[in-house]
Nucleic acid binder design. Structure first.
Length: 472
DNA sequence: CTATGGCACGGATT
DNA sequence: AATCCGTGCCATAG
């Protein structure tokens, strides 16, 4: 099974080749899509071949081979997941925004869809009809928290409009009902809320400063240091912190937030467009996983044969430039292949190692490092790092997780910890939990238990009295 | 006195 | 080389 890919594999021969492969490897599917789009527009040597689909399952085919899913061997082995490159343009922003704006009633799931339409309805009267599609794009890009993690420049580039126009639209969005939706950070959301709230009730002095300059201190509850930074007494800082947690909401997409949630980044449920989709064919334990490595336009991007011919009788003054275009095009195509090849091999191994994690969930994760995987694959560890960073995986359960989660060394202990707390009858102290974990084969220091608890947003024992609903 | 959070150090990972 | 993570120590709150 290593035959096909091996023969077409390209070794980096030139530094340019190497550099470009590295860059491409680090891109997510959306970024790659944009990259290809611009290349396509600027390089006449490139063209898009017509789309080919599998006659059986209607999948877009990415190479000359028959459909990798339909032709899957019947004697498939658990240890040989079916990995292939898939071109899924339907997952990318274009289709998203048009689908939503044309058909606002149908979304992916009600939870995600409700917020965009709700907001859209509010701002519609003030919205220039021409900006409708921008609003749709922005709103559908919001994450669980109601924040916009996509850079504005990216959206602007996508629609070929100036950034300021995007900003105008976002201003409207931010000032509609879940106040602060569409902000790019919790910090920004807080400031919007503060601004509006200031018209209704008194605000403790220095609140805005605290948010602007000491957001990280605030979320880590290092009030002493914050007070020092702002030159105000500790008591005032605590007033500010109280005010914020009672009146403001850094995650406008969530209905409520309590003191339960602390730390700024433990729950980064950012919404991604997937870069990799894992599905299991059936529910049986023996079926292999099917893995799609998303590579937009894969198999369709090619060198325009007409351009190649035209090069023969090119006018003198153009010959050099055309040759350059051709070389660049060829390089891009090769590097793309190599990127995909690397990702396929990586996922192949990863799926075997983390099979139970993928199917069963967090508690089954194997604590591996990028370095160990790099060694098994025979590539440099930085290659693995690049390939992993920023990518999102859609699991068979439909859950979207960052690929880096596959390398989380403490996750299995954290789930064990959560399990203990979930089934405790009376609140256990950190020391007791550490002891239990030790018995279960996880030797952890008491201090570490506390950190894990904080990561999961679980309150300390003395505040955890009887309330079972320790959601998340 | 006990339980926890903050800070900082050292070793592992990226 | 830069960052992340587990820990020990100390201060603080109850």
């Amino acid at each position: 099974m290593l035959l096909q890919t091996q023969s077409t594999a390209i070794r980096p021969l030139t530094t340019a080749h190497l550099a470009q492969t590295m860059t491409l490897l680090g891109l997510t599917s959306v970024e790659l899509y944009q990259k290809i789009e611009t290349e396509l527009a600027s390089n006449p040597a490139l063209e898009l071949a017509p789309e080919r689909r599998c006659p059986h399952c209607r999948r877009i085919l990415t190479d000359s081979n028959p459909c990798p899913v339909c032709t899957q061997p019947s004697n498939s082995n658990i240890d040989e997941p079916i990995v292939y490159v898939s071109s899924r343009e339907d997952f990318l922003p274009t289709q998203y925004s048009t689908a939503i704006s044309e058909n606002p009633e149908e979304g992916l799931t009600p939870d995600i869809e409700d917020l965009p339409t709700y907001v859209l309805r509010q701002i519609a009267p003030d919205l220039n009809p021409d900006d409708h599609f921008i609003a749709a794009h922005v709103l559908t890009s919001l994450d669980d928290d109601g924040l916009l993690r996509t850079p504005l420049a990216e959206i602007a580039r996508y629609h070929h409009v100036p950034v300021c126009r995007i900003e105008d639209v976002i201003y409207l969005i931010k000032h509609s009902d879940p106040l602060g939706v569409g902000s790019q950070s919790p910090q920004e959301a807080l400031l919007v809320q503060l601004e509006v709230l200031a018209e209704q009730k008194p605000i403790p002095p220095h609140t805005a400063e605290a948010i602007e300059e000491g957001m990280d201190l605030l979320s880590r509850r290092q009030y002493g240091e914050l007070g020092h930074k702002l030159h105000i007494p500790l008591a005032r800082v605590k007033d500010i912190a109280n005010f914020i947690s009672e009146n403001l909401n850094p995650y406008p997409g969530r209905a409520h937030w309590g003191d339960i949630r602390q730390g700024s980044s433990p729950t980064q449920d950012v919404y991604y467009h997937p870069d990799i989709i894992i599905s299991s064919q059936t529910e049986t334990d023996t079926s292999p996983l099917t893995i799609e490595v998303i590579s937009p336009l894969a198999g369709r991007l090619r060198i325009n044969p007409l351009f190649r011919e035209a090069l023969h009788d090119a006018p003198e003054e153009k010959a050099e430039q055309w040759q350059g275009d051709l070389d660049r095009a060829a390089l891009l195509v090769k590097c793309l292949q190599q990127r995909n090849n690397t990702l396929v091999r990586l996922m192949q191994r990863l799926a075997v190692i983390q099979r139970s994690f993928i199917l069963e969930g967090d508690s089954e994760i194997a604590p591996i490092t990028r370095a160990s995987l790099a060694e098994k694959l025979g590539v440099h560890e930085s290659t693995v790092s690049r390939a992993v960073s920023g990518k999102a995986v859609q699991l068979p359960s439909g859950r979207m997780v960052p690929l880096s989660k596959f390398f989380d060394r403490s996750l299995h202990i954290r789930t064990a910890l959560m399990d203990i707390i979930a089934r405790e009858t009376k609140p256990l102290t950190d020391t007791q939990i550490a002891k239990i974990l030790d018995k279960q084969g996880y030797p952890v220091a008491r201090r570490t238990v506390a950190k894990y608890r904080a990561m999961e947003g679980i309150l300390p024992a003395y505040l955890r009295s009887k309330n079972k609903p320790n959601f998340r």
